[in-house]
């Protein structure tokens, strides 16, 4: 029985034997992307989950050329790797970065902005698990409103994180980047197609993929893919692209699934009140008004 998506990517495993938690969404995103890009991908990963679980000498889990960067330096090291290989005469390779939400939207945003500004020929993939998971679930700039983390406790006075996620996709797009996209490991074929597309485009590419962390989100290890699908289905995330100066929505749910159901499945949101959930639903609707107005379908 043929699986077109499986047939479109390498049969090799490039991220294998790693020590990520069972059911890790980030490792699924990295694995899938490398199976698209193949042997000549050069991966750059900053300090964070994927480097911590993949690079402990002598257990080295990337089968392709891979290197850890400084936490802030994913994009700048990608720039150097790409320039260095090109200067040495290599043409057939892809410099790809895999950074988490904190490594991208917080400490790494300056270097990322610089790389996009230079239009360096790199793919930057943000695997977004919505908190600093490697250090034990602390709030990042991409932690959603209401989420309980170890630095945004949920108490009687404050119900978890009080700020919404930064809009990294549109921040990247605002640089007039050649290609930017959102994705979710719950819609893996869509993510794979976007990595394939990015690999064919010259200049800087940014892909922002939701990659649940069962440990940090408070769901079972086997729920990763389902919850990553549900966040799209309930409208709190969306699958879109930015190309040639315009936004395009790839997937419009006919009807949103219940936001409360999505939230209540997760330990990090269990404390939310009806009022909190109403606020989250209202901000979703506002975002979709914007998407419907400004994104092509």
């Amino acid at each position: 029985m043929a699986n077109k998506v499986a047939d479109s990517i390498s049969r090799e495993e490039y991220f294998y034997g790693h020590k990520a938690c069972a059911g890790c969404g980030g490792s699924l995103a990295v694995r899938a992307a490398l199976k698209v890009l193949g042997q000549n991908a050069v991966s750059v990963l900053p300090a964070g989950c994927m480097s911590a679980v993949g690079f402990n000498f002598p257990q080295l889990c990337f089968s392709n050329n891979s290197i850890i960067s400084t936490f802030a330096g994913t994009a700048s090291m990608l720039t150097g790797v790409e320039a260095g290989l090109r200067a040495r005469g290599y043409k057939d390779f892809t410099a790809v970065g895999f950074a988490g939400d904190g490594g991208t939207a917080d400490i790494g945003i300056q270097a990322l902005s610089g790389a996009i500004d230079r239009n360096d020929n790199i793919i930057y993939i943000c695997y977004d698990n919505e908190a600093y998971m490697n250090t034990g679930i602390q709030k990042s700039g991409l932690t959603p409103f209401g989420a309980k983390t170890t630095t945004t406790p949920a108490g009687a006075n404050i119900h978890g994180n009080i700020r919404p996620k930064k809009n990294m996709f549109e921040i990247a797009a605002a640089h007039d980047i050649p290609y930017a996209a959102t994705a979710s490991v719950g819609y893996l074929p869509d993510f794979i197609a976007k990595v394939q597309k990015a690999s064919q485009i010259q200049g800087t590419k940014y892909i922002h993929v939701i990659a649940p962390c069962p440990t940090g989100w408070g769901v079972a290890p086997d729920a990763t893919v389902d919850i990553a699908k549900e966040v799209v289905d309930c409208g709190l995330w969306y699958l879109a692209e930015y190309e040639n100066g315009s936004f395009k929505l790839n997937h419009k749910p006919k009807e949103f699934t219940d936001v409360a159901a999505y939230l209540k499945k997760q330990g990090r949101f269990r404390h939310l009140t009806d009022e909190d959930i109403q606020m989250i639903t209202a901000s979703r609707d506002k975002k979709w008004d914007y998407i419907n107005k400004n994104f092509e379908l």
Partner: peptide, 16 residues
């Protein structure tokens, strides 16, 4: 039936 969905979605790549 060998549909490969499990292979595709395995975070550890352990299914062939």
């Amino acid at each position: 039936v060998g549909c490969e969905q499990c292979y595709l979605y395995c975070p550890d790549g352990v299914i062939a």
